[in-house]
Nucleic acid binder design. Structure first.
Lengths: 248, 248
DNA sequence: CGTAGCATTGATATCTGTCAAGCGTTGTGG
DNA sequence: CCACAACGCTTGACAGATATCAATGCTACG
């Protein structure tokens, strides 16, 4: 499985870009030293599969950079993305030995992995880690439930607008920290990946993107470069309250 | 809010039916004593709202008996159920002061509530509780993701079969502990509640129930009393692997 | 007996999926 | 260097699933 290129030297936790947001956020110096001992980096190229559902999984870890997706597939090939993993998000489940979902690198991806058994031992001894993981899991549960509303009740147009608004908001808060004026970003997902996330076909995604463009809700340069001239308008199209939005 | 009828004397934790499955599952005697001090029971009749989304929430708690639902509602009235709370399931989120969803009693309901602030203090001091809550939250996250596949990719018929199979399985494991032979149970949900859970209209639910009945997948006496002659057949209709099923 | 709530069924409309053709870019091998 | 294949995407025509609107049935209950 592992080859030379997939392994990479792991930098010090002190220099880590996700140091204060990941599962290790609340660890003290000595705890970080212990984590350093059981961690290793792995890199994946866009499109590579990190792990297959059902496979034995002897690590857990955090996304350091890039985006990964969690997907489920039915026997006849229908697939549904059930999670989008961004930097600092956690992969794997302590106490479970096999993967419950396919994990795929959507973009080039760097992960900080911990050997599972020592990590589990450390969790028992280090309440910080379990507490932080609980917080993160509760956030993910909220996001999953938010997404259930999107999947169950929104129209195709609203679904697209919801996805764009989530990506735009995350991107804006990372880059500038504010949501004013026009927002510009690159879509990290193919039309097919968008369809898998939204429970649509890629044709419907394409049509609705075109429709939103025609109506001036978004501007497109090429396939991926998106400009949102009016965020409130987009959120209105998404069917969300324009003020604050999700979990405000 | 609270009236005479809604409050009820709480029995000893030692006699509690959900003692070994709820958030308190791993507590020791002295910890239970502390919990006894901050707990109180509340009863709700079918249809009553336990709490409205956005309301201040000064308790967390466990479902002791009955079923509650978590729902989200859009401005125009579209609603999506995002969780079904069964006995031992946990309600509320430590560290958050307002409810994120509407919580409604689907059947008559008894809840064991803990005052939020003392419970949070206790969580910090009692790793058992945080660990158990983490486990339960991870299970809920898995269930939510499983449901995303149902909402995003399954047909109306498969959705109904999925819901029936979940209820049947839970009911069977509670009553007899095995899944053999014909399964019989009462639906705890109205057609409308089923529709809200499945992202369908109540008419479509009704039609698909009739179709499954006509095809012999289920038998119906009255509106709610269901017999599953062949569980494997039902799971096949649900589009799940017949062996083991969800998270096997 | 009449009403209210829940459920069923029918007719029709609409949205999204399916199938198919074609475009533009990228990369590769002759 | 060019031709061509591969890939991601767009667009069109059509079909099919589910929603919508409407009428009716069934129970329980006052």
């Amino acid at each position: 499985m592992l080859n030379d290129k997939s392994l990479a030297t792991a930098p010090d936790c002190a220099d880590c870009p996700i140091r204060h947001r990941a599962v290790c956020a609340r660890c003290e110096t000595d705890e970080l030293e212990r984590l350093e001992e059981i961690k290793y980096y792995r890199k994946f190229e866009a499109g590579q599969t990190v792990i297959w559902s059902g496979d034995r999984m002897d690590f857990v870890g955090s996304v350091v950079s890039g985006i990964a997706s969690l997907t489920q597939t039915m026997e006849d090939g229908r697939t549904q993305m059930v999670g989008l993993l961004l930097p600092s998000d956690f992969v794997g489940r302590p106490g479970r030995s096999t993967a419950a979902y396919d994990v795929v690198a959507t973009t080039d991806l760097v992960m900080c992995c911990f050997r599972k058994t020592p990590f589990e031992e450390m969790m028992v001894r280090t309440p910080h880690i379990a507490q932080r993981l609980l917080e993160m899991t509760l956030d993910e549960l909220d996001a999953a439930r938010e997404w259930m509303l999107v999947l169950g009740r929104k129209t195709a147009r609203e679904k697209i607008a919801s996805l764009l608004s989530i990506i735009a908001r995350r991107d804006a808060t990372l880059k500038t920290g504010k949501l004013e004026g026009a927002l510009v970003f690159d879509l990290p997902l193919t039309r097919e990946a968008m369809a898998d996330y939204l429970g649509l076909t890629l044709e419907t995604v394409s049509r609705q993107m075109s429709a939103l463009k025609k109506d001036g809700v978004i501007q497109l340069e090429g396939k991926r470069h998106v400009t949102i001239p009016d965020m409130a308008r987009l959120m209105d199209e998404a069917g969300d309250d324009a003020d604050g939005g999700i979990l405000a």
